[in-house]
């Protein structure tokens, strides 16, 4: 019975090995919702301050689309700040990520205004918009619902909009939907996984 402690120790080590092995093999669990589309994400062309921009321009990078408007005081700055935080966490890897902010308020958001706005969160961010019909078509196919509603005389009209961010992988497929408010760490982790 001298061997009993050895057997116990070996069994424990083995179980621990299997446990850690299984954990390492376990697939990464995304914080956003994975979309398994085999087709490319819908392409479009909208205007930035430095010319036309299409998601297909960023093939090879991971592209994050977020829809909002610059008059938006809470949701949009929070999401853009979270995305900027994720870019900082990603470090050098962030050069492989392109954040595109699509304004659903073409009446008030000019490309120049958008450039200054998104640039204040991260200079690599791009802000785009188009005429009302163009923006409506882009938002519709990305499942982004938005509508104006009356604000107060001071605030002017406000816009309700879907606040999830859409992530397109390097091959141009829509891969991930990030819900509002998941924070920079989780966003960075998901983007890091897509960059592998």
């Amino acid at each position: 019975m001298k061997r009993l402690p050895i057997i116990l120790a070996v069994t424990t080590a083995l179980l621990a090995g299997v446990w850690f092995g299984a954990r390492a093999l376990r697939p990464y669990s995304f914080h956003g919702t994975i979309i398994q589309s085999p087709e490319p994400a819908p392409d479009f062309t909208l205007q930035s301050a430095s010319g036309p921009v299409s998601p297909s321009d960023f093939r090879g990078k991971v592209t994050v689309l977020f829809f909002g408007y610059t008059f938006c005081p809470d949701v949009c700055p929070t999401t853009l700040a979270d995305l900027a935080g994720a870019m900082r966490i990603l470090g050098d890897e962030a050069d492989e990520v392109q954040v595109v902010f699509v304004s659903v308020d073409p009446d008030r958001d000019t490309p120049e205004r958008l450039a200054e706005y998104v640039g204040s969160f991260d200079p690599r961010f791009v802000g785009v918009t188009g005429n009302e019909d163009e923006v409506a078509a882009v938002a519709a196919v990305y499942g982004i619902f938005y509508e104006k509603h009356e604000g107060t005389p001071a605030s002017g009209y406000l816009i309700d909009h879907t606040a999830s961010a859409m992530v397109i992988d390097r091959e141009g497929r829509l891969k991930l939907v990030l819900p509002f408010g998941i924070g920079p760490q989780d966003i960075a982790a998901d983007l890091h996984e897509l960059l592998k």
């Binding site: 994975i34 979309i35 589309s37 519709a140 879907t162 939907v177």
Partner: peptide, 11 residues
């Protein structure tokens, strides 16, 4: 069932 695509938004 697969998550095929995002459904469009509409009014």
């Amino acid at each position: 069932l697969p998550r095929i695509r995002l459904a469009p938004a509409f009014s």
